[in-house]
Structures are given as C-alpha cells and as structure tokens.
Nucleic acid binder design. Structure first.
Lengths: 206, 206
DNA sequence: CTTCCTATCCCCCAAAAACAGGATTTTAAA
DNA sequence: TTTAAAATCCTGTTTTTGGGGGATAGGAAG
C-alpha cells in the first residue's frame, strides 16, 4: 500500500517540527512538503502534488481559508484538513465552505490526526472539535464575508489611515471610503473602529 | 552529572510536543513539567522546582513577561528562557528586564536550544535572535509601559466603549477618560484608535 | 522635603467618524 | 440577458476623536 503523501503548512516552525516528529515514525504517511506560507504551498504543489494537506488558518500571507479554496480549485485531488487553534463554529463553517475535508484542533492527539488523515484520504470527512473549556471566550465571531474592496479599506484602516487618506490612496471619494467603512461596521456588527479592528485582528484579516 | 530539570510552557500543545520530542533523546536535560498556562506553571513549581524554564510570551492568562518576573521573585533559583516568535527589540528588553537569562526564537535549532539551556543553567546568559528576514515587518513596536488605569481604559476602548460610556463605567469624567486615551495614543506613538487597538492586540494587551 | 508619577479635571477647537437615508454605474453571475 | 452584487457618489446631522495646552491633589521614592 502506498504511503499517503502529506503537505503541512504552519507559520510556526516548531509546530511543523512537532508534526514531523509525530508523524515520522508512522509508515502510513509520508511528509513530502513542509511550508510556512501559502505562497510556498502553491509552489510546492506545482512540483509534487500531495494527497492530503494540513492547513493552519493563521498564515503570514493568505489565510488558510482562502488557501484551502485555492487548493481545491487548482489541485482538486488534494484533500485539505484544517489544523488550527480556533474552535469557533464560524471558522469551521468557513473552512468547510472552502472545501476542507477535515478540521482538527491543535490539541488533537497523534492518533486523532492520523485517523483524520486516513479517513479523509479514503474520501471521507473528519471533524472533531472537542471543547476543552479553555478558549470559549470568543464563541461569537460572525466572520463576515468581505468584498475585495472592503478588505482593502479594512487593511488601510488598520494601518491607521483616516478616510481622507484612504480616499487619496485609492483614488476614490471620501464618501466612498465612508460607505465601505459603514458597511464594514455593519458586517462585523460593531459600532466603532476599536471593535472593528479588534475583530479583524483576531480573525486574522489584517 | 545531574540532568538539568526543565519546565516548558506554551499555549500550543503541539509546540510542547515538538519540544518534548526535540529534547527527549537528550540525556543532558529532563522535562519535569509541561504547562499551557501561567497558572499551571506556578502550581507545578510548588511541587517541584525546575532548573530552567522555557517560557512562551503569549499565554492565555498572564503574559510571559509578567510570568517571568513572578518566577524570578518566588523561585529565584529558576533560570528563565523566553522562547517566542517575537524578534522585536522591545520584547527582548522587557523580558530581560523581567529577569530572563535567555531569549530564543521559535525557529531556533535543537542544538541552539540545548546550548541556551546549558549555558543559562551554568549561570550564563544566552540570547540569539537571528533575523530570518521573514517577519521584519513589525520591527518597531515600542510596547510602552502602561499604568493600571491606562490598561483599564485601553481594555474598554478595545471592547468598543466610547469615552462617555467608559467615563460612566469608571465613575470619572469624560475628560479624564479622554486624557488617558490621549496618553495612550502618545505612549503607543500612534494617532488614532485603529492603530492603537491593532498594536494593543498584537502586543497581547487586550 | 522635594521631585516624579498618577489620576483627576478643565479649556478651546478642528477633524473625523457614525447615523440615516438614497442614487448611480459597473461587474459578475445565474 | 436579466438579476444581483459591488463599487461608486450624494445630502444631511450628531457624536466622537484627536491635538494643544494646562491645573490640582495624592502618593511614592529619592
């Protein structure tokens, strides 16, 4: 029986290391790529396509959700499993919507990770998020879907630019920027910039 | 020769796992405690005092800097080594100020970690932050020292309260809140709430 | 006993953001 | 091609923020 070819991506090298050690002695799987950015993932896949990809959600360049969607589009044969610290329903939904076949928390056990990989590779789906009671503070994060323009504006707001400055930078009217800003506030269901930015940061959108 | 007794703390179980695997085969050291929160660390130390503690900075309850200070106070014999992803000067300074004897990035190699542990245990100090060029975006984060009141106000701002609301909650004048707010902006060297909150979030202050 | 720090309060004023609507055009998808 | 979504611009008003000062009382530390 062929070994399952794995790609793992995480921005923390130590987590990669941990996974490598965890999976190295298993002969059912074989890690063919270890990446720390979404860019590396796509590059790596062009050279050798894995069977399963373990994806972190927090990546420096693109977030794991978008990365998953992209993988599903460019390499439909690759099964994606989210491996993250977030147990929020919204993340799970987004990830599944993006085409993920599995979802694991980083405190998952070795056997659990292995089971997930195998079941997913066999065409199944695996999702287990056991509530350890530790991080249930952020249970309510809608994570709205933003348009490209809104993301752009949000990023600039987070960088500290004011509406006039953003308008100048994007070559649009201040009124337009203000509209986007208002829409952002609505989508995030918040009433001021402080809440908006905090939500955006914890959601990894900035 | 006695093995060096280690305590490691990190909120990501996988990093703990990685470290464990990394250090398990070494006979120079011995992990006696693995914790995920600052609270656990203090509890663990009451039962068995380690020689060296590897501390993450991002912890769910108390940040690693304060934890380090507390360890140095309650268990002066314990040498602390920061093990984190932050390469910012300000973090290093804070950590050293808190009494740490070492500072490592999470992308440090196994031998580097071992060397650090041994040198620190021998009474020395070890600090090596090599710039991998990857995360130099955040090179300038002052991390100002905030007064208790300022932290309080900052937290409320981050929760989305306006000055009048904060004033009401703290039973002080709006003008007072505004002063704290202005001082916060000065200390963080930013010019609006968006930048303030973003900095505060990445600094783990909210 | 002085400084220094903190917290509190005050002034004036300009700029920005938020609230509440609506309208138009371009773009993308069904 | 019809429809929906996105991006653009508009008119108002009200509230909040931010920038520049300053003053005072209490406490801690030198």
């Amino acid at each position: 029986m062929e070994k399952i070819k794995l790609l793992i991506v995480d921005d923390h090298p130590l987590i990669l290391e941990g996974l490598k050690n965890l999976l190295a002695e298993e002969d059912a799987v074989e890690i063919i790529h270890m990446c720390t950015t979404a860019y590396e993932v796509i590059e790596a896949m062009r050279t050798a396509v894995p069977d399963v990809a373990l994806l972190d959600i927090n990546l420096p360049d693109v977030n794991g959700i978008e990365l998953c969607a992209r993988i599903r589009k460019e390499f439909p044969s690759v099964k994606c499993i989210a491996l993250t610290t977030y147990s929020q329903r919204s993340y799970i939904n987004k990830m599944m919507e993006a085409g993920a076949a599995g979802y694991l928390l980083k405190n998952a056990s070795k056997t659990e990770i292995l089971t997930a990989i195998q079941e997913v590779h066999a065409g199944g789906m695996y999702l287990r998020v056991k509530d350890d009671g530790a991080q249930m503070e952020e249970e309510n994060s809608p994570i709205p879907t933003l348009t490209p323009r809104e993301k752009e504006v949000l990023a600039l707001i987070a960088e500290g630019l004011t509406n006039p400055q953003i308008a100048k930078k994007l070559y649009v009217s201040v009124l337009t920027v203000n509209s986007h800003r208002k829409n952002l506030l609505h989508k995030f269901e918040v009433s001021n910039t402080a809440m908006l930015i905090r939500q955006a940061v914890v959601a990894g959108l900035v």
